[in-house]
Structures are given as C-alpha cells and as structure tokens.
Design a protein around this nucleic acid. Structure first.
Lengths: 350, 350
DNA sequence: TCCCCGGTTTGTAACGATCCAAATGTAACC
DNA sequence: GGTTACATTTGGATCGTTACAAACCGGGGA
C-alpha cells in the first residue's frame, strides 16, 4: 500500500520489466500503447508503472528514434509584453502538438543571440522560432543554426549579406500597410500636418512603417516636413523625452503616427508634461495593441497585431515545416487591424 | 574550401574520429577540453569538427552521464508583464549557468498545470521553478513532479492538504509587509478612510496583503468598514467595473490600497469614468511596479518587487539546490520597496 | 501427428555520447 | 638493456529507450 521509497536511482523501463517478469521490449510497447500486447500483460505492466512511479525518459527515446520533441523559441526581448504574448501563443500551440518549448532570451544582443542559439541547438530541438536581435548577421545566425534545422524568422528580417540559399521561413507583420492605415485614418479626420514619431531609423520594421506613412501622405497630396520625422529608442521613456521636438520648428504637426504603442504612450506622457492633452488637442496612433493601449488615458487608437495569435501561427508554420522539410520556404505576412479609440481626435481648429 | 554538403544525417563524434583516425574517446576528450590530449591531436580534431560542422549532442551526453542541463519554468500566466519579466530573469541566470530553460505556461488552469508538469518532467530537467495556478492541489503537483526532483515554488503557496514532508523550496514576496507599508504611507498623508481594493478573496497573496493593510489600520487606531473591502478579478477590466462599489455606501473612502498594479490602473480608469481624479481627490497605491506604473496618469505609487531580480534569485536558489540536494528546504521572503509617485495624494479636505 | 497461423513476446543491436581500466609509446633512469 | 615513469590513446561496456527479425504458443486443419 505505502509507496516504495526508491531513494535515489530513477525507475527505468528495465525495473518495470524485471518486476513484471516480461522483457523490456514489452514494457516499451505498453508505454507506446501498441495494440500488440495482451490485455492482461498490459494491465499488469501499467499497474507496476504506477506503483513504482515510473517516468518516461523522452531524451533516451528521442536518441534512439532520431526524433525530437522540442522546439526552440529565441526572442530579442521577452520582457516586452508583445513578445510575452507571442511566447504564450507559441507555447500553447507547441504544447498542444506534444512538444515542449526551449526558451532563450537574447535581450537584443547579437552576441547573446549567437550563444543562445548554439546552446539550444545542442539540445536537439526539432526547429527554431527566432525573433532576431537588431543588427544581427544572417551568416552568423545560419552558422549557429545549421543548414538543415528548420528555422522560422519572426517579426524582423536578418541583416548582413544573405547566404546563397536562405532555407528559412518567415512570418512578419504587415508593417507598411498598418502605418498606412493609421495615417489614412488621421487624414480622414481632417489632419494635414502629421508626424511620424519614434523608432530606430535603421530597424527594418521602422523603415516599413515610415514607408506606409509616406505613401498615405503622398496619396493624399500632403507634404512631409523633415522635422516631423522624429527618431527615438522604442521605449516609453525616450519617447517622452523626445516629445518636445515635435513643436520645435514652425508648422507644428497636429497628429502623429507612432512607431509602436510603447512610443505612443511615452509621447502621451510627454504631451501632458508640455501642457497638451492627447485625444483633445493632439491626435496619435500606436502599433501593436498591447494590453495597456485599451486602458491608457485616453485609450489608444492603434493597430492590432494579436500577438498571441501570431505565436500560434508561428508554431503552426514551424510544425508544418517539420512534417514537410522539402517544400520551398514560405513567407507569410500577417495582416493588422486598425482599432479606433479616443486618442485619435479631429484637429483642434477643424 | 567549399563546405561539405552533408545532406541528411547529422555529424557525430564517430564521424570526426574516423576522419581523424583517432578513437571516439579521444574526440570526446577534445570536446570537453581535457588536458590529457596532445596539442597536435587536439588541433587536428578541432579543425575537423569545424570542417564537418559538428554539433554536440547534449542529450546523449546527459543520458550517459546521468546529468541534466535544463531547468523547467512553469508559469501561471506568462502574458502578465510581471511574470514575463520574471521569466527573463530566470532565463538570464539559467543560461549563465550553462543550462537551458524549458518553458511551460499553464494559463491559470490546474489541468494544464498537471499536463505541462508531466510533459516537462519527461524531458529530464534538473529542477523545476513553478508559479502555481490558482486553486492547485499540493498532492497532485507532487505526484507530477515526483519526490526527488528539486522544486522551487514561486509567488504562491500550494493549496490542498500538505503531504507529510514537503521537500520544496519557496520564494515569495513580502506581501503583508508591502501592503502594510502602502497603508502606512496613506495614513501618514492624513487619510482616515482607506479601502482595500481588488483581488480574489481566497488567493494566498491577496489574503496576505489584506492582512498587512489590516495591521496598519489597526496600529493607527483606524476602523475598517466591511464595505471598504472590495473583491475583483485581478485584471484592469474587472477593477474598472468595480470602482463604483467604493462610493456606494455612506462614509466613502478617500484612498485605497489596491491588490496590485493592474487593479490600481483599472481603478484609475473607473475613477475617471465617475468624474474623479486619482492623485487629486482620491489616493491609491498598487503592488508590483510593472513598467506602466511609472507612466500612468498619474504615475502610480506602488511596491516595487523587481520581478527580473526575483527571476534571477529563483534560478540561483534552484541551482543551489541542485548542488546541495540534501540540505533542508529553504523559504525565502523577498523584500519589497515602496515607490512613491503622484497617485498617492493627501485627502482633499485635509 | 505435423504444419501453419495469428496473436504475443523477446533477444540483440543500435542511437551518440562518456567512463574506466588497460594498452601504447617514449624518454629517463640505474 | 631493462625497468619505471609519464603522457596519450583506446576498446569496450553502458546510459534508457526503440527497431527488427526471430521465437514462442496454443489451436485448427490436413
């Protein structure tokens, strides 16, 4: 009745086999639910498994079967709510497929990215989902990952010059179209002088969003003043600091398309600090629709990317690749949706 | 010069040994940087390792050495910024120790917790860091984890009746002291009628925070009206919904100690919706110091828990346990720090 | 009686690494 | 020259599991 102490050594399949007086092969068949084993034997073995508190050693099985039961998830900034949601989505889908997630956070450092990839690959994941650190080099990533391990790139392109045949899949947001929609929305409200605020000049997502903004402005026959393009780190703090720059020159803008939500929230704070009231005398939009966008003051008009769903999608794409290693690389662009809230108001004088 | 194609099969230590005309054992020694091998042999082998693009198979090594190179991290809500930061801290320390992180998100479901633990344990982690789902049962957790796998419980106690000898370590925040500090701060500002707002009645952290609040009130000789204790889900949305309840009866409070930051931010929103201005005619405090607390309107007075540092600490505690399996369980209470910002103002009539 | 058959079971050799005791080669010593 | 000491190298056996081909077994048909 009492549980067997089993002080140190782990219980293995051999222990069970010995106790039931059957071969290891039979126990293995039971574990995998094979229809070959006799009903009685199965019952006897299963009872013994419970009794001894056996736990399956999947690494050993993977070694023998030359399979994998994990996928690696490498993120440039796990602490960012956008990626945290994304990770939750990945894990959800990965777990549902019977895999486990190996996590690695690079904190936006390409050195750590190299190290993390190297370390994770040694654990034999079936594939890798990577949101690259800024300024990474395609060649180095490929070197760490190898030519044959399925790789899904999320969110960013890889920098550096491309190797001859890039074998990876990609999943990116429709940055350009999204920023374009935001700008069109502000234009429709009557704004004429619209800034593009925040983000790093050379990040690929920022470039794409700027481009979308430009297209919308151009299509509406509106001019873009160079001092309406304001760079900042993609953080609230730096964004708040840069707010003043908007009103430095003459012909100050009445609205801004912000690089992302963090920047937009920072800008809001900066506006308040300069005595302006976002959503009343200045309109702005974000990008990402993080949880706080809904409850900021005022609630933020933004582009919803549904990061959790993107995580599920990324996992699905990678799992698909695991089963079809030889189909040509796929490149998915996930649509984004404009969510209108109170931060985008008409221009004051309109 | 060109890289060897190596179309399918992975390169193993045997391949290298064959190519260098040495034994597998020697290659193994090289890989582990043993001082036994001759300088020339080492160079020859290392060159070949590079040439063939060898990657170490850590699972195989772990099998043979009966070691582990991973730790499992199981969280009740990865999408919550608090836990995302925590996870980043864990991963940082875990990676620095040469381990990888196996991630599992339970989304606050005890069923998924069981499944996730079961699945992760099969991959042979060296230990587990678990932030339990609400309403979990100690017995079931122990059943999934086993009696001998190092386990560190973070943030919450386990429900259900305790097994005879609980072998796990714990790391919790000083919830009681924190809430007490918040209440004392409000009292010092001159508030007499202070509510405790939000959180689930029966969650252990909420109980502890309520207790801290009570102690402070009692120590100051202040009464606690029962309708000042308002329950809510620990989310912004539900908190905003419950805001009205504060002013339902007579003797409405002039301040509130909130269960956590999410609840506090929700309450702020609710206050605005009822025409009140938090930080001017109503004071409130949060708990956690999430990133947005600093930039809310007004910036939130709260208790800083430094979740990333807690993550590092959790990893350190678990790694310590790995090296000292037989020392008695440790129970760590992490201090919290009051961060005063603008949301805590004096009472209006004072 | 013998043979064949489906339903079960099993022995043995892997998977890719490490451990360990023993073997090798070389230089140094008496 | 023979012995010892030291530096290197190596052949298995092994970790816990699975694949595979072969063996077993009881019964039905010839």
């Amino acid at each position: 009745m009492g549980s067997t102490p089993q002080v140190r050594r782990k219980v293995t399949l051999s222990d069970i086999a010995a106790a039931c007086d059957v071969s290891r092969a039979t126990v293995s068949l039971v574990l995998r639910g094979s229809p070959l084993v006799n009903k009685n034997t199965r019952a006897r073995v299963e009872e013994e498994l419970r009794r001894q508190g056996y736990v399956y050693n999947r690494s050993a099985a993977n070694l023998r079967r030359r399979t994998s039961s994990s996928i690696a998830l490498v993120l440039n900034d796990l602490a960012n709510p956008f990626f945290a949601e994304f990770a939750a989505g990945v894990d959800e889908a990965v777990a549902a497929a019977g895999f486990v997630t190996l996590l690695g956070n690079t904190a936006e450092s390409t050195d750590r990215e190299q190290a993390v990839l190297g370390s994770l690959v040694e654990h034999g994941p079936g594939g890798i989902i990577l949101s690259p650190a800024e300024g990474g080099d395609a060649r180095k990533v490929l070197e760490a990952v190898g030519e044959h391990l399925p790789l899904l790139l999320f969110n960013r392109e890889l920098g550096g010059d491309m190797p001859a045949r890039a074998h990876w899949d990609t999943l990116v947001l429709d940055n350009q179209r999204g920023a374009q929609m935001a700008a069109e929305h502000l234009i429709a409200l009557g704004h004429k002088r619209i800034a593009f605020f925040g983000g790093h000049r050379d990040s690929s997502s920022c470039r794409q969003r700027r481009e979308g903004y430009r297209q919308a402005m151009h299509a509406a026959g509106l001019r873009v003043e160079s001092h309406w393009m304001i760079e900042s780190a993609p953080t609230r703090l730096d964004a708040a600091r840069q707010a003043a720059a908007l009103f430095a020159g003459k012909s100050a803008p009445t609205a801004a398309v912000c690089y992302n939500d963090a920047v937009a929230l920072g800008l809001m704070l900066g506006l308040y600090q300069h005595g302006r009231r976002p959503g009343h005398d200045f309109a702005l939009t974000g990008f990402d629709d993080i949880a706080e966008a809904r409850v900021s003051m005022p609630p933020l008009t933004t582009l919803s990317t549904v990061p959790r769903e993107r995580g599920r999608q990324a996992a699905a794409l990678l799992l698909h690749r695991l089963h079809h290693p030889d189909t040509p690389p796929s490149h998915t662009v996930a649509p984004v949706k404009l969510v209108v809230r109170d931060s985008s108001c008409p221009p004051p004088a309109a």
